[in-house]
Design a protein around this nucleic acid. Structure first.
Length: 219
DNA sequence: GCGACAG
DNA sequence: ATCTTGTCGC
């Protein structure tokens, strides 16, 4: 698939934040409610700043993987909380461009709207591709939330400065919640519904687990 | 002011 | 993040 060309690369944190502040205005918080090809994305780090990005495309009906791609490279930015996307974006975009199929939903490993400037990795990937995107975080990052109930599907809002920016969502009984937020062209209800639908057996959605596995074991 | 801080 | 990758832990 084709991805919009990356903006000039930031040489420091101030430039990176300026890019986020500018692109934030392009995020759309509504979009389709059903999908046919869902992609999970993840990046594996190894050695000194080496990265392997993986994307696995699933048929949304059968939940079977239909295509995958891997791109190797170097972390493109130092790790700074809030600017984490700049480490992984070039490798992830390269992996997406290797795909023959064009997914219609990106399931990202990290946050979207639930971010200090409202523009996490899932928003960034969504805006660059123009595709609906959602973020799934494994640890709380920003905002406050109550503990959701113990059953799959139970959730509580993540609130920051009087706004709901995501949900703590229980995907499996008595297993720690995941943190869902909108990336681009998706509602919070739809993002929640898709994360649940895509999670078959473990804590995280299958597309993210498969991408994680592929990034660790590319051969 | 200090510490903590997605992956 | 890195480790083998299910999740939790005080």
């Amino acid at each position: 698939m084709q991805v919009k060309r990356l903006h000039p690369w930031p040489s420091d944190a101030a430039e990176a934040e300026a890019i986020q502040d500018r692109l934030r205005g392009h995020v759309e918080l509504t979009g389709p409610t059903t999908f046919t090809l869902v992609a999970g994305l993840d990046v594996h780090y190894h050695g000194d700043d080496q990265v392997t990005a993986a994307v696995v495309v699933f048929d949304a009906g059968s939940l079977e993987p239909v295509e995958q791609a891997v791109a190797r490279g170097r972390a493109a930015f130092p790790y700074v909380p809030g600017l984490f996307a700049f480490r992984e974006l070039p490798a992830l975009v390269e992996a997406l461009e290797l795909l023959t199929a064009t997914p219609d939903l990106l399931v990202c490993d990290g946050y979207g709207l639930a971010h200090p400037r409202g523009f996490g990795l899932a928003c960034h990937l969504g805006v660059l591709t123009g595709l609906p995107a959602l973020g799934v975080g494994k640890t709380p990052f920003i905002g406050t939330h109550e503990t959701p109930g113990p059953e799959p599907g139970d959730w509580t809002p993540i609130v920051h400065e009087d706004a709901t920016i995501g949900r703590a969502l229980r995907t499996q009984r008595d297993v720690k919640p995941v943190y869902v937020s909108q990336g681009h062209r998706i509602s919070l209800d739809t993002a929640t519904e898709q994360v649940l639908r895509l999670t078959s057996r473990f804590r995280l959605p299958d597309p993210i687990r498969h991408a994680d596995h592929l990034a660790r074991h590319p051969d």
